[in-house]
Design a protein around this nucleic acid. Structure first.
Length: 954
RNA sequence: GAGCGCUUAGCUCAGCUGGCUAGAGCAUUUCGUUUACACCGAAAGGGUCGGGGGUUCGAAUCCCUCAGCGCUCACCA
């Protein structure tokens, strides 16, 4: 019964201790610390201890948990052990994630490709079952890591996202949401990867710098006064005029065009080719053209008689410059062309993709743009390449009046931004028309000449054609932009229409914003006030989603967006008036600074595309009564057809003869949708899905804390809140602790190429698990990144050893002493000596600080208190101070005994030392479970002190 | 472009709602100790708390502004 000599050896002790905990089932809520045994499930439920639960975020089960996952376990474990020590019945529920897209990717790469096999040679069932084997194998490895870092979780209840019970819950939710009108199928814009022939998610897109010709083309618009233009031409062609200069404008930067303006009779005059004109001077120049504007005003264009530049090109650029100030201007060059089509006005629009013009459904301008005001809300008939078509003219805040000519062609089928504009103006902009096929050839919508040709080729051909037909104004060949490229294939993304399943967030979104509502949510952060949100929610809950929401259809949700120029004065302190939410129905995010970020995300939520064309995951519980295919019809609209009695008819999403949404097949002839659900659809249900599976809802729901990396706060935390609200009308958890990013040994972001990766086995072996854990906690704050450096590891290895040695000292001084007494009931009155009193007080103070810090999730502070308190106060000050009562004092030179320790004093010192040590061990235990348990094992227990520190009273 | 954050000792970082001479670890220098611990102890040096301005009796801490860096989102027809 004595701690062995020498330094603490973690390797020798950790496994033994871990095995004892596991064998005793000490991690399970069924463990009864009073009787030190495992009770039945029913007994556990009747156990009156307060329940506390934490559901572990499931790591991707295709490999070992990474250092970030493991750091998460360390945080979770502190909380769990702390709660046990405070007498709670604790459930820590671990799990593993199937990681749909990524999981399938890893399996295909790591297993199939190495075996030179192809997914598409396999049957779906065969593929699925092989993958399941692969995952099951990996899950055991992952669980080993969880155990070794000391995570005190109920490993018997480890849950996989594809466990049958979980699948049931997830699919039930899908059906319920569908029935509530929240899940719908619709034709929407997707990011089409033409190389992989699949849709890719927004976050799998990269942006690549590229030089693309930028076309300014004209939608010819006849104003009916072309005759007047011809008269002006005849009157002024080639004449030299003398006119009064009014103002001089110099274009900044590289393009050295100089303009001047003036009047002659009733005609405005614009001259160029003039420079350094003095105010008030007369200007003389030759008329080269007439500029017409959509409001039918005319302007003569003149150049300096000595001008020797490239008139045509200069005028084109002049025109662009002008277009910024005068809508729809058009210039006639008298010497260049006499084709009548050149006398027309038009809407000039810039684009890098003229081939999509055939899909335009509207022309949009900035609502603040005075130039086009008179056209907004009207239908205009325009001409392009000799064809007439009608377009709606709309105003939308997404258009910037200062960019280009301030006009935007709305092409909902082929541009994301346009799709969004269209969704705000469905009447004017929809249905979308698709003119490009999935193989990037043009389809029938683009007319006979281009149909069947590659879109890129058509773009070049159109340049010529537009010029001939008077539709081309100017091309900037030096234009630089960023094009979207698929991350995997590097193929340029083509936005196209395709049918997808979507989840509409209405109702659950408002609920979630309210859940996280706190003092950070002032009016500047939220589109809607708390009152409005509550109103929406009340409506959502009282009438049911189906009545509240617009019916499912393939139109995007109509939504009014706020005016951009809100009065900034309203920003003032709404902070003070915002009521704090009730504790029981709100989620507290730590650190609070993440809340505005969270709100930003929530306010910008769009309908979520939940289907993925994969095999690994939850296949959609959707059934079709016949074969389904997607086509582009004669009007360019993407439609799904379904085989009915031998012919294809249009698939009606609301027709139960065509589609049924249910878990079981409606019958043999019904065909199940090929897609699986996005992984977040299941992880978003993780809290209640796991607790339901284990029949623990009554006891442990809602859970207490969720620990997660801050990088998935938006994707995961918010979805758990939304799903849980939908399904349980409750918060999923009370607190969210966000962890930062673990950086490498050199303080840089960990990456294989930098060679700064941490090998967890190696580090644990060399420094011990307790030291590794301390590095995660020490001086770290929620959400902050931190580096796992060898210096820090070394520091805490030494700290572990310091605890070890100080314990040996205490042991030496209490061993055999009588009357150490009931440590749990000691008070200041039990101590007489100033040194023992001081130590006793120190323990009270530090305990108070540490308790407060753990409860407020300030683990960095708590470990700082512990490190500093144990080492520099307990060991360096207090232990040194009491030594004089326990040592025989000798004269340094002679070696003669000066004084002997007094028995009474020695006992008192022993008592306070043991008291201090035991309390420190308890306080250290949640952070450093192994070494503290090891030392605890050596100490004599008093009544009420449990064999396991995690069940000792805090 | 928008949102959020960071900038404190040579290095890595704490410092929460403003308050006594601004802290820790590592590193550096000096001294000490071998009766818990050399994986030790005592002490020292080292900081215009990114720059500038403001509020205040008082600011690293609050406000404004500038600069540099980082993350996230959106990318401009």
């Amino acid at each position: 019964m004595a701690l062995p000599k020498g330094a603490y050896n973690p390797k020798e002790n950790e496994q033994t201790i871990l095995d004892r905990w596991l064998e005793a089932c000490a991690y399970k809520p069924e463990y009864d610390p009073k009787e030190s045994r495992v009770v039945s499930f029913e007994e556990m439920k009747n156990d009156s201890r307060e329940a506390w639960s934490l559901i572990c975020p499931p790591p991707n089960a295709y490999g070992r948990p990474h250092i970030g996952n493991i750091s998460g376990y360390a945080y979770m474990d502190v909380m769990a052990r702390f709660q046990r020590m405070n007498g709670k019945k604790v459930l820590v529920l671990p799990g593993k994630d199937h990681a749909g897209l990524e999981g399938e990717g890893v399996f295909v790469r790591e297993v199939l490709e190495k075996q030179k096999r192809d997914k598409f040679d396999m049957k779906r069932e065969e593929f699925y079952s092989e993958m399941m084997d692969f995952f099951e194998n990996n899950m055991d490895i992952a669980m080993k890591d969880e155990k070794e870092i000391g995570l005190s979780a109920d490993f018997d209840r480890d849950t996989f996202t594809l466990d049958p019970d979980i699948v049931e819950t997830v699919l039930d939710t899908f059906v319920e949401m569908y029935n509530a009108g929240m899940i719908y199928k619709g034709v929407r814009l997707i990011n089409w990867d033409p190389k992989a022939r699949t849709a890719v998610a927004d976050n799998q897109i990269l942006y690549k710098e590229s030089k693309t010709p930028f076309f300014y083309f004209k939608y010819i618009y006849k104003t009916g006064d072309e005759k007047r233009a011809i008269e002006l031409k005849n009157e002024f062609e080639g004449k030299e005029l003398e006119w009064n200069y009014e103002r001089n404008m110099t274009k900044d930067g590289k393009e050295d065009l100089t303009f001047s303006y003036g009047h002659l009779d009733n005609l405005e005059i614009m001259g160029y080719g003039y420079s350094n004109v003095q105010s008030g001077d007369k200007i003389r120049g030759r008329v080269v053209g007439i500029q017409m504007r959509l409001d039918s005003k005319y302007r003569l264009v003149v150049i300096h008689p000595d001008y020797s530049g490239d008139i045509k090109n200069d005028i084109a650029q002049t025109f662009l410059f002008e277009a910024k100030y005068y809508a729809g201007a058009h210039i006639l060059l008298f010497e260049e062309n006499s084709n009548d089509s050149d006398y027309t006005n038009g809407f000039v629009i810039g684009t890098v993709r003229p081939e999509t013009v055939f899909s335009d459904t509207a022309i949009a301008c900035d609502p603040k743009d005075e130039r086009y005001k008179e056209f907004v809300g009207k239908e205009v008939e325009v001409e392009f390449l000799g064809e007439k078509k009608k377009l709606n003219f709309i105003a939308d805040f997404a258009v910037d009046k200062d960019f280009g000519t301030g006009l935007l062609k709305v092409t909902p089928a082929h541009a994301k931004e346009d799709w969004e504009i269209a969704s705000r103006h469905p009447e004017e902009c929809l249905p979308a028309i698709q003119c490009i096929n999935y193989d990037l050839t043009m389809n029938h919508i683009s007319g006979e000449k281009y149909s069947g040709k590659k879109a890129k080729l058509v773009r070049t051909e159109m340049r010529e054609d537009m010029l001939k037909k008077g539709n081309l104004v100017y091309v900037n060949d030096e234009y630089e932009n960023k094009i979207q490229v698929a991350e995997r294939t590097e193929a340029p993304i083509e936005p196209l229409l395709s049918s997808q399943w979507y989840l509409r967030y209405d109702g659950i979104k408002e609920a979630t914003i309210l859940m996280a509502f706190n003092e950070h949510n002032d009016d500047t952060n939220l589109e809607q006030s708390r009152e409005e949100l509550e109103e929406i929610l009340e409506k959502f809950n009282s009438v049911g989603a189906n009545n509240y929401l617009p019916l499912r259809n393939d139109l995007p949700l109509q939504k009014s967006l706020p005016e951009q120029n809100e009065d900034i004065e309203t920003r003032t302190d709404s902070k003070a008036t915002n009521p704090q939410p009730e504790t029981h129905n709100s989620v507290h995010i730590h650190p609070e600074t993440m809340v505005p970020k969270f709100n930003h995300w929530m306010n910008n939520l769009r309908d979520w595309a939940i289907s993925r064309s994969l095999w690994w995951g939850y296949r959609l519980p959707v059934w079709y009564s016949g074969e389904v295919k997607e086509v582009i019809d004669e009007n360019g609209q993407v439609k799904e057809l379904i085989m009915q009695n031998g012919t294809f008819v249009e698939l009606e999403y609301a027709n139960p003869e065509h589609i049924k949404v249910q878990k079981e097949s409606p019958g043999e002839s019904w065909i199940q949708d090929e897609n699986v659900l996005d992984t977040w659809f299941s992880s978003g249900q993780w809290v209640y899905a796991t607790l339901r599976k284990h029949n623990l809802m009554d006891e442990f729901f809602p859970s207490d804390v969720m620990v997660s990396g801050f990088d998935i706060m938006e994707n995961w935390i918010s979805r758990m809140m939304m799903f849980t609200y939908f399904k349980e009308k409750s918060i999923p958890f009370k607190d969210v602790y966000l962890t930062g990013l673990v950086k490498g040994t050199d303080g840089q972001k960990m990456s294989k190429s930098k060679g700064n990766l941490i090998n967890i086995d190696e580090v644990r072996e060399k420094y011990g698990t307790d030291a590794v854990r301390m590095v995660y906690y020490y001086q770290n704050t929620a959400g902050a990144d931190y580096a796992m450096t060898y210096e820090k590891l070394d520091t805490f290895k030494k700290f572990v050893n310091k605890i070890w040695n100080a314990s040996k000292f205490v042991e030496m001084n209490v061993d055999g002493s009588e009357g150490v007494g009931t440590n749990n009931n000691l008070s200041l009155q039990d101590f007489q000596l100033p040194e023992t009193k001081a130590l006793f007080n120190h323990i009270q103070e530090i305990k108070e600080q540490i308790t407060k810090n753990i409860e407020s999730f300030e683990l960095g502070h708590a470990t700082y208190n512990l490190y500093h308190g144990f080492w520099h106060e307990f060991a360096d000050v207090h232990i040194e101070a009491v030594k004089k009562y326990t040592y025989t004092q000798r004269d340094k030179e002679t070696g003669e005994i000066i004084s002997e320790p007094k028995a009474e004093e020695k006992i008192e010192v022993g008592r306070v030392l043991l008291y201090a040590l035991k309390n420190y061990l308890k306080m250290l235990h949640p952070f450093m479970p192994f070494v503290t348990q090891r030392i605890w094992d050596e100490l004599e227990k008093e009544e009420g002190e449990h064999e396991f520190l995690m069940y000792c009273k805090w």
